[in-house]
């Protein structure tokens, strides 16, 4: 049994390990190991296309995770203990956002926004006839907006679990001691849910940073790192992609393990045992 578990973990991690190993390949050919070298990391980091795509990915991930954390936390607080129609609609929307495949979300967002921009842009042009009217288009903004949607659903789901496990008596005690609601929030609720918010932010960041399929549709002329990698792979396997892949996986692993540890420690602190 233990051997079987070991084999499955090997299956899960060996391909990643091999990519990492070959990223240190000194040879030009992707699959023959010809000695240790970090030259491909240097090449990848000196490639202006890679750096531009990386910057787009990081800035989109940061902005969308920030928006999702703030608005998602607000919504989770409002939905706490709520029942009735609003709650039912909110639950349905959250599940739809999580369950509908990314490809459908991407397509839907693309056709909706292109059509909407097609209606709005002439209006904007009429408002500012000097040719100085801002034109809306697919790009940075639409990437952030689309990623923030999924991430917001994620943050709400994480915080809902935490808020439900929270001891209501603490909030009541705070109110009994005449703390105004805002002070109760700042001194009691926020410290308790903060690990959840932080974990939600990290997961949102990772999701956005790794997402390919939604970005593929809504990025317009922007190139995110996954889009860059996808189009490079089509041109052939190179050690440079191995190096980029290793860096991407490494960054995700660090963020994810941090999020897991924060969540698990937080769960124990909130008195809700379990893994």
């Amino acid at each position: 049994m233990r051997l079987y578990a070991l084999a499955v973990f090997g299956f899960l991690y060996l391909p990643i390990a091999i990519i990492a190993l070959f990223s240190f390949n000194a040879g030009r050919h992707a699959s023959q190991f010809a000695g240790f070298s970090t030259q491909w990391y240097g090449k990848a980091l000196a490639n202006p296309f890679v750096m531009e795509a990386l910057w787009t990915s990081v800035s989109v991930a940061f902005a969308s995770a920030l928006i999702a954390s703030v608005f998602g936390t607000m919504a989770a607080l409002a939905l706490q203990g709520m029942r009735g129609r609003v709650r039912a609609i909110a639950d349905a929307l959250i599940y739809i956002a999580v369950m509908v495949p990314g490809i459908v979300i991407g397509i839907a967002t693309l056709i909706a926004l292109v059509t909407l921009f097609g209606w709005i842009n002439p209006l904007l042009a009429r408002l500012a006839p000097e040719g100085a009217a801002p034109q809306l288009g697919m790009g940075h903004g639409t990437l952030i907006a689309a990623h923030a949607l999924f991430s917001m659903a994620l943050v709400i789901l994480i915080l809902r679990a935490r808020l439900e496990g929270m001891d209501r008596a603490l909030i009541e005690a705070s109110a009994d001691l005449y703390a105004p609601p805002l002070a109760t929030f700042r001194q009691v609720t926020l410290p308790m849910i903060f690990p959840g918010i932080l974990a939600g932010f990290l997961l949102s960041f990772t999701f956005s940073f790794d997402d390919f399929i939604i970005a593929f549709f809504v990025a317009g002329s922007e190139t995110t790192l996954p889009i860059y990698v996808f189009s490079s792979i089509r041109r052939g396997v190179t050690p440079e992609i191995n190096a980029i892949g290793t860096m991407v996986l490494g960054a995700s692993l660090v963020l994810l393990i941090a999020a897991q540890l924060i969540l698990r420690r937080g769960r124990r602190a909130a008195g809700k045992d379990g893994g």
């Binding site: 391909p15 091999i18 990519i19 050919h29 790794d210 390919f212 995700s252 994810l256 393990i257 897991q260």
Partner: peptide
């Protein structure tokens, strides 16, 4: 707990890079 984290973590990492790993593994070389 540790093993469970090890199971969950790959799911959240880039499926693009992980599929690429298999191009590498299953490809001619």
């Amino acid at each position: 707990t540790m093993l469970l984290i090890l199971v969950i973590v790959p799911f959240w990492t880039s499926i693009l890079i992980r599929s690429y790993a298999w191009i590498f593994l299953l490809g001619g070389q």
